[in-house]
Amino acid sequence: MDSINLEAVRDEDFLRTVEKESGQNLSRCYQCGKCTAGCPCGPAYDMQVSQVMRAIQLGDKQAVFEAASPWLCVSCSTCTARCPNEIDVARVMDTVRHMNRREGGKHPTLNAFWDSFLKTVRLSGRAYELGVMALYMLRTGKVLTDMDLAPRIMPKRKLPFVPHVIRGKAAVGRIFKRFHDLRMDG
């Protein structure tokens, strides 16, 4: 395996775009690791938050986009609240996820979940929990997801079997349509 060629790996545009979209100055990060230390998802990450920050500093777009971590971030903002350099780290994680998604990047299960959720919102104006589960199972083929919870929650009779459809569902649908149209136009 070759060592990382610092010149070859540096994508200046990528670094500047992350900085602009997130509104954060990445050169402030001195790699103390406090973000990694407090991240609830750290143990499940393939690349720690502070390493993502470092890769962005180096302009290593490929490394950042190949990492699963930005997808897994739960946006709890512990990193942001404790960063000694006042970097909104969670917003940086959001930003690289958004950028990755715009370029067609996907996470195998998370995208399916988010898309399922947003589809129910697009169709009825509000999120519909049973619908989200059904769509998610359909998309991922993981038909047994959380089946153990069914006997716990179903008797509570909290989950309606039909979605709440709002009068303004068309207005919400138009938000999604314009969003997608504009994205397609670049």
């Binding site: 406090k34 230390a37 502070s50 404790r82």
Partner: peptide, 29 residues
Amino acid sequence: IRGRVSAIQPDGKGQYIVRAADTLLGKPV
């Protein structure tokens, strides 16, 4: 251990959990 500590949390059993990162290893510790 090279890394700033994120939090100190009592574990309810008389000890304190120091939550940090080993940045040389790239892992939370």
